[in-house]
């Protein structure tokens, strides 16, 4: 009989709630969103997701092999799957296949593994890839199919993989994009004149957002993450939108418009909650979320890009270590929290 000698604790619940479990829960939580997207924007979303997953797993395996790491062990943690899924949800449903390929490959190879892999990447890989695609291929990235006008499954498939000529007129900008390029019009005129801002379109977006919110609430109840980052982000975004729309309702969109269009909900519950790239403490996460919300509003309202979640998150990723330094919790028995790094001994 040989007795095992290891350090305490001897019990843990991570056998049931490991990293794999967390990732599975995240994937599960995206299901309502996927369904809503598919309902409104057609099969493109599902096809994109499947293709992105394949690419992601292949890239991950390839890099792990090059890094001489156990492939099975790392594939099982599911982080690549989540990355691919989030990216696929963020890009337009009818985006061509190579867009997905480039995005996912860049996310996995460069944004994740080049920085050391799981747990070491300072920037959210999905958002890095999204930003790359948005900057490199702005047209492809902003062409969304109008709700309920999506082609059939085979049509979509052919469209995505370039097997059939593109259907014109079926695509349009997202509401945010349309809103962005709406110079010299009051909001009312704009909403009436632009197809992307018709009430059906808006309803579709709102519905999708609500589906993400549902998934996020599920994750919160399963204690996959704490409320701090999403609430911080949504709160600050709402406050910003409220202040500005009160100031001039003709120019600045309403709170609900900001909350329920674009990637706001997806970002709040699936992007800023990515544990690796945010601040560490709960206080830090709250600050992180607030920062993201403020930046989203600023970029949306005053920047050049229609949607701002990716840039806001990336910018706050930069700031995360800094936030960490100044958001240490106060330890038991100490009057105040430590701030910053230890001073050099003299």
């Amino acid at each position: 009989m040989s007795l095992l000698a290891i350090t305490s604790p001897h019990m843990n619940k991570s056998n049931a709630r490991g990293v794999g479990f967390i990732m599975t829960q995240v994937v599960l939580a995206t299901v309502p969103g996927i369904l809503a997207m598919t309902w409104f924007f057609g099969w493109g979303t599902i096809i994109n997701i499947c293709f992105a997953l394949l690419v992601a797993l292949a890239c991950e395996a390839l890099v792990l092999k090059l890094r001489k790491r156990p492939i099975g062990f790392y594939l099982k943690d599911g982080s690549a799957i989540v990355t691919a899924l989030l990216l696929a949800l963020a890009i337009p449903p009818l985006a061509p296949w190579w867009l997905t390929l480039v995005g996912v490959a860049f996310a996995i190879i460069v944004a994740k593994h080049m920085y050391g892999g799981m747990g070491y990447n300072p920037f959210n890989p999905a958002m890095v890839a999204y930003a790359l695609l948005l900057v490199s291929f702005p047209v492809d990235m902003t062409q969304w199919v109008l709700p309920d006008t999506a082609p059939s499954f085979s049509g979509t498939f052919q469209h995505i993989f370039g097997l059939a000529p593109a259907f014109d007129g079926m695509t349009s900008a997202t509401p945010l994009d349309a809103f962005k390029h709406s110079a010299n019009q009051t909001l009312n005129e704009l909403f009436q004149s632009t197809p992307a801002l018709k009430s059906e379109t808006l309803h579709a977006w709102q519905f999708v957002s609500m589906a993400y919110l549902l998934g996020g609430i599920y994750l919160l109840t399963r204690r996959i993450y704490t409320w701090h980052a999403p609430v911080g982000m949504l709160g600050s975004l709402s406050v910003m939108a409220l202040i500005f729309s009160l100031y001039d309702a003709d120019v600045y969109a309403s709170v609900s418009f900001h909350l329920l269009t674009g990637a706001t909900m997806l970002g709040a519950f699936f992007i800023v909650t990515d544990p690796v790239t945010t601040a560490t403490s709960t206080k830090g996460r709250l600050i992180f979320g607030i920062g993201v919300g403020v930046l989203i509003y600023i970029i949306r309202a005053f920047g050049n890009y229609p949607d701002a979640v990716a840039f806001a998150v990336l910018l706050m990723n930069f700031a995360a270590p800094f936030i960490d330094q100044y958001s240490q919790p106060r330890t038991y028995g100490h009057k105040q929290a430590r701030k910053g790094l230890p001073k050099k001994k003299d």
Binding site: G18, V19, I22, F73, D77, S79, G117, M118, G119, Y120, Y225, T226, P275, V276, T278, T280, S281, T282, R285
Partner: peptide, 8 residues
Amino acid sequence: AQDCIRCG
């Protein structure tokens, strides 16, 4: 042990 994902 896997890598820390800083889940908090």
